[in-house]
Simulated scan of single mutants.
Amino acid sequence: MSTQTFTVTGMTCGHCVKSVTEELSEIPGVTDVQVTLDSGLVSVTSEQELSRDAATAAVSEAGYDISAWN
C-alpha cells in the first residue's frame, strides 16, 4: 500500500469534497480517499504509488487544482 498527500485549492463545501473524493476513488487501485475541507489536504491510499498525472486529471475533472504535493 502507498499513501500520497497533496493540497487541492478551490474547495468551499461538502459537495466539493464529495466531487474530489468520487473522482479520485475511480482511479484503479485506489482503496481510500480522505479530504479535509478546511486545509484542502487530500490523502489517497492505493495498492501502488499513485500517478501524479492520474491524480491531477481526477482533481481537474472534479473542477479543482492540486496546488502542492506533500
Rank of each mutant, 00 (worst) to 15 (best):
M1R: 13
S2L: 02
S2T: 12
T3L: 07
T3P: 00
Q4C: 09
T5I: 13
T5F: 00
F6M: 08
F6C: 05
T7Y: 13
T9E: 15
T9R: 14
T9W: 00
T9K: 10
G10R: 08
G10I: 05
M11T: 06
M11I: 09
M11Q: 06
M11F: 09
M11P: 11
C13N: 12
C13I: 12
H15A: 04
H15C: 03
C16W: 04
C16T: 05
C16E: 00
C16I: 08
V17D: 06
K18D: 03
S19M: 08
S19G: 10
S19Y: 01
V20Q: 00
V20F: 05
E23G: 04
L24C: 05
S25T: 11
E26Y: 01
E26F: 02
E26H: 08
E26A: 13
I27K: 07
I27Y: 06
P28T: 14
P28S: 15
P28C: 10
P28Q: 14
G29I: 00
V30F: 01
V30E: 01
T31N: 10
D32K: 14
D32S: 12
Q34T: 13
Q34Y: 02
V35Y: 01
V35S: 06
T36E: 10
L37C: 09
S39Y: 03
S39V: 03
S39A: 11
G40K: 05
G40S: 06
L41M: 11
V42P: 03
S43K: 07
S43E: 14
V44M: 04
V44A: 06
T45G: 07
T45C: 03
E47M: 00
E49Y: 01
L50G: 11
S51G: 11
S51L: 10
R52N: 13
D53L: 12
A54F: 04
A54N: 14
A57W: 08
A58R: 07
A58G: 04
A58S: 13
V59T: 10
A62I: 10
Y64H: 07
S67T: 12
A68L: 09
W69A: 09
W69I: 04
N70L: 12
